[in-house]
């Protein structure tokens, strides 16, 4: 029991740091690709620390509650995964974390923020089924919904049985990381047509909360990529790391080569092409009769 608690505490502290460093690397590598020097790798951490000491300006108090809910549910997602809990339930918890953010953007009388929220809802609609399908695929190939069983030693790498699902997941991940061409709801770059979308009306410490939640999310997303190759084995861990690194580079290249697309286009793309791709993989697994 105490061992679990220590593990959880470490995870809760370390995950956002790792997420922040990934985000920092992201900015650095992007800068280098554009021929710039780029910010220090720890820049996201500086940003958050700065936001924490800024004046806490806000519009209404509901907004603040939603920000805390966003963070809490993102942390809960992590905790459930560390506890080796049911993946589908974890996914729902994660979806609700996103919904909290959406609601936070909706509950203010700011048109930009509201439009951002609506787009974010569409994005949720676009990638959520894919993630559920992914979990179903994991069940079909490993015979359990439990995260602990999936990462258990001896389980065969997921990537081998779920190659198409992995590609679909890459797309879903790009949406969640707010990478072009999917960054319609809120973007890391400045001049967007809806200013900053969902997070527009959050400032100071409240924005910091959302940033921290985003670090958790970044960590989780890359952790999932890592677990596409079974981890409990040093050699495999290296492959998993390489996979995560590859995903990282893929997203940066994607971000830098594409222009932003309309929200409905993204939904259609995800529901038709990506969703079909994922389901093809699933049907293949059903035909193999692994369960």
């Amino acid at each position: 029991m105490s061992e679990t608690i220590i593990k959880l505490l470490i995870a809760i502290v370390a995950a956002p740091l790792v997420g922040a460093i990934i985000a920092g690397l992201d900015r650095k590598v992007t800068a280098r690709m554009q021929g710039r020097v780029g910010p220090p790798i720890l820049q996201p951490i500086y940003d958050v620390l700065k936001l924490l000491i800024k004046q806490p300006i806000f519009l209404n108090r509901v907004q603040i509650l939603y920000a805390f809910m966003h963070l809490a549910f993102m942390m809960l997602t992590l905790v459930l995964l560390i506890l080796g809990q049911d993946l589908l339930l974890t996914l729902f918890v994660h979806a609700f974390a996103t919904i909290s953010l959406i609601l936070g953007g909706m509950c203010v009388r700011s048109p930009y923020s509201r439009i951002g929220s609506q787009r974010k809802t569409l994005m949720l609609l676009a990638y959520e089924p894919i993630l559920v399908i992914m979990v179903v695929g994991i069940y079909l190939s490993q015979g359990s919904f439990m995260a602990s069983d999936v990462v258990a030693a001896g389980a065969k790498p997921l990537l081998l049985s779920l190659p198409l699902v992995f590609i679909a997941y890459m797309m879903a991940m790009a949406i969640e990381l707010q990478k072009s061409p999917f960054d319609v709801a809120s973007s890391h770059h400045a001049h967007q047509e809806i200013v900053k979308g969902v997070t527009l009306e959050y400032a100071g410490p409240f924005l910091a909360i959302i940033e921290i939640a985003h670090f958790y999310e970044v960590f989780l997303l890359f952790a999932v990529v890592y677990f596409f190759w079974a981890p409990y084995n040093l050699a495999n861990a290296a492959v998993g790391m390489a996979l995560a690194a590859g995903a990282f580079l893929f997203h940066i290249v994607l971000d830098n080569t594409f222009a932003r697309l309309p929200a409905m286009w993204i939904v259609r793309f995800m529901w038709v092409i990506v969703f079909l791709m994922a389901t093809t993989n699933i049907i293949w697994l059903y035909r193999l009769g692994t369960i």
């Binding site: 209404n60 609601l103 929220s117 609506q118 949720l124 609609l125 559920v132």
Partner: peptide
Amino acid sequence: ALTVLFWAKWIGRITTVS
């Protein structure tokens, strides 16, 4: 996935407040 859309929309609307 679709249910989320209308609940979120509705909750967002009724919690909108200055």
